[in-house]
């Protein structure tokens, strides 16, 4: 008993940047940088990303164009900066919406009669057994390829996993004494959920959101790459890789630069998510 209280005491629950391992710090910094790019990228871009100038086509990286130009003479740096919005914002939307739907459905399931709860969870099981890429591809094709349909496709295939996660967490929280205490107090079901259950259940959902954004970026870019997402000539990283890949031998930067940015984004969010998870799981809220 003593050693337990002591070890709990030794743990510092506060998220402190200065005390963080270097890798975690780098991941959070990278995520911050990416979000800044989403917000201000277009302002920083030195050129119009859609300005075609065939005379300037496929210039290697240099003083004029830091990251070179593509086959249509468009500035790669500017296109990468513009592309942060559709790619990252698109992923954020897709994952955020999935989480929102997932948590809402899970909350309803938790309050609903047992058989409704069971039915919802079985539906999730079925949805989860379908491969996400194939499902997304199908939906995307059915709705016509565009950034919007890529997002819809991802949300449709992703919400069940958040429902499952949230439902499991909510189930645990529902058995805690303070929730029983609130039930005895006679609080409404709305207040029970919003004040007592959800705030104590969503930590792992937040972590999962951060973790999944990296993966979502990859899928978003992947959908564009195979032509099911954002369409050329729009400045979207996946679409950029696709059009650049044809010139891999002659102008490698047109594909490698957006490809590297995609990898970096996925990595940064995954690492940040891991760091968050380490922080929340090692913490006792008590």
């Amino acid at each position: 008993m003593t050693s337990m209280t002591t070890s709990a005491l030794l743990r510092r629950p506060v998220l402190r940047l200065r005390r963080m391992p270097k890798l975690d710090r780098a991941a959070f910094a990278m995520v911050g940088l990416l979000l800044l790019t989403v917000a201000f990228g277009p302002l920083l871009a030195p050129y119009d990303p859609y300005h075609v100038d065939l005379g300037q086509a496929m210039l290697p990286p240099g003083a004029e164009h830091w990251l070179g130009t593509d086959s249509s003479g468009r500035d790669v740096l500017s296109r990468v900066l513009y592309g942060a919005r559709p790619t990252i914002l698109g992923s954020l939307c897709a994952v955020g919406l999935s989480a929102l739907i997932g948590v809402t459905v899970a909350s309803l399931a938790a309050l609903a009669p047992r058989w409704v709860d069971d039915a919802i969870m079985r539906i999730c099981d079925i949805a989860l057994s379908l491969p996400i890429m194939v499902m997304a591809l199908g939906i995307s094709v059915a709705l016509g390829p565009s950034l919007r349909s890529a997002i819809i496709a991802m949300v449709l295939s992703w919400w069940p996993s958040f429902t499952r996660l949230a439902r499991a967490e909510i189930r645990t929280t529902m058995t805690s004494t303070y929730v029983e205490s609130a039930v005895i107090t006679g609080v409404s079901r709305w207040r029970l959920m919003t004040r007592h259950v959800l705030p104590n259940s969503l930590d792992s959902v937040y972590v999962q959101v951060t973790l999944e954004i990296g993966g979502a970026t990859l899928i978003m870019a992947g959908l564009s790459f195979i032509g099911a997402g954002a369409q050329p000539p729009s400045a979207e990283w996946g679409a950029m890789v696709e059009s650049g890949s044809r010139f891999l031998t002659s102008a490698w930067w047109t594909a490698v630069v957006p490809g590297a940015v995609i990898t970096l984004t996925a990595l940064a969010f995954a690492l940040a998510g891991d760091a968050l998870r380490a922080r929340t799981s090692g913490r006792e809220v008590m």
Binding site: T177, Y178, V179, S181, N200, V285
Partner: peptide, 15 residues
């Protein structure tokens, strides 16, 4: 009204 056994568990930590 009810007072629970374990005050570490019976109070919502987020309130």
């Amino acid at each position: 009204q009810l007072v629970f056994q374990n005050p570490y568990a019976s109070l919502n930590p987020r309130m």
